[in-house]
Design a protein around this nucleic acid. Sequence first.
DNA 1: GGTTTACTTGAACGATCGTTCAAGCGACAA
DNA 2: TTGTCGCTTGAACGATCGTTCAAGTAAACC
Lengths: 196, 196
Amino acid sequence: MKYDHDDVIEKATELFWQRGFQAAGMRDIQQALDMRPGSIYARFQSKEGLFKLVVENYAQNSAKRLKQVAEAESPLGALYHFFETALTGPDEQRYMRQCLLVKSIAELDIIGDIAKKAVLESMQTLKTGFRDIIEACIENGELPEQTPAKLAAEWLQNQFVGLRAFAVVQDDDEPITQMIDKVLLDIKGQWPLNTH
Amino acid sequence: MKYDHDDVIEKATELFWQRGFQAAGMRDIQQALDMRPGSIYARFQSKEGLFKLVVENYAQNSAKRLKQVAEAESPLGALYHFFETALTGPDEQRYMRQCLLVKSIAELDIIGDIAKKAVLESMQTLKTGFRDIIEACIENGELPEQTPAKLAAEWLQNQFVGLRAFAVVQDDDEPITQMIDKVLLDIKGQWPLNTH
DNA sequence: GGTTTACTTGAACGATCGTTCAAGCGACAA
DNA sequence: TTGTCGCTTGAACGATCGTTCAAGTAAACC
């Protein structure tokens, strides 16, 4: 019963991730989940309700992966590996390069207030995850003490977002890995003073 | 007649930019353009045909702005200003922070082959624009000679894309300007050697 | 004057959208 | 046995989707 629930969410995630909230029709969902409309509405109340669960589950998984990076022996090395696996990969999973959350941000005004809230809160959750990685790197001596953790965390998340939007239209893996290399150079580089 | 045409494209751009291709319904378009369905189809053949014109016009405008940056007295200074105006701004124009092209990439599988081609070609056009800026900076002595122009251009576009996705969910302007500062530090920083 | 051309109107089309609902199923409690 | 519960089915709802079309208008060309 519980396994079945996870399986359903997983399949819904795949569909929303590929097509987006708007373009994933209820008929597509019915087919993907092998459920009839009544069942779906009895369980999830609406398309938006299902999407909310998908987003939350996605964010939870992502946060878990970020936590693993932060707790690795070499957080910076794990970070590289994390970026690489997320941004490259087989062509049939290309849709996975685009972050589901970022994709949802493009639909933010469409998806309804409940789902919107879930998306924005999930973004916040991931930001915390990135922050933990930065702090782990500092503690581990892989980043200098004076690295501004809060700014660096936002910056890192930002790099990730940009790279994912970038990777999805890149045929070659080579430019992507070069970009990741650049990220790992810049993270050790200079930071602006907040004097605006 | 010509002015009228530009005005129509401009209004359509605003609508697509705010709502996206999918969510902008023909009835919304009819209202925004103050045109009846028959007129729209006589002129643009389809919703996708109109969207294609919007994308091409958007890319052309963006390319023009990038060209102005490259031809400025201080390209690097102009670049900063370009980023700042694109990424900050009044709240009622928040939708403009998100790049129309990047937003369209999220809908790439939905918008049809003709519009898809236009989006991808426009991305290519803008990449050339960024490349010209890098080269102008090098020629002007604002960037070191050995800066890898091709890689740096892709990186710069990538930063822009990431920042736009980032800025759209930021309430504050402060973190955004800090990110821009970081971009201008990193562009002068180290670059990876392409040894993969 | 007649024909063509580009554009206009608004009703209407068939398809698809998210959602509802009466009816039924098996499991568990009283 | 009876009642309630979570969950199932599939037909059907009204709304909205992108699009078509017959009919009309005004300027341009022969």
